[in-house]
């Protein structure tokens, strides 16, 4: 499935939900926030949130800042 992740093309191998995508990309255990097609997906909804061809996903995390 062809996706756009953080602005770059990404070919998902098996992932069909947000949760499985995060695992596939190695972000499984990390605190990230997922934005799917400009909509924030709360952590509790990730399992149920399916992906479709052409979806845009942005992943954010907290870093040090003033």
């Amino acid at each position: 499935m062809k996706l756009t992740v953080n602005g770059e093309a990404y070919e998902a191998k098996r992932a069909e939900t947000v949760t499985s995508l995060l695992e596939e990309m190695g972000f499984g255990g990390r605190a990230v926030v997922v934005v799917l097609n400009d909509e924030v997906i709360p952590a509790v909804s990730r399992d149920a949130c399916g992906l479709r061809e052409g979806d845009c996903i942005d992943l954010f995390r907290l870093v040090g800042g003033g």
Partner: peptide
């Protein structure tokens, strides 16, 4: 304590600066 928000680097694996704070 203030923190900033950044897109996750897809390839690079930066240090997790904030984990210990949590």
């Amino acid at each position: 304590v203030t923190v900033a928000l950044r897109r996750v680097g897809r390839v690079s694996r930066e240090d997790d600066m904030l984990g210990p704070l949590h």
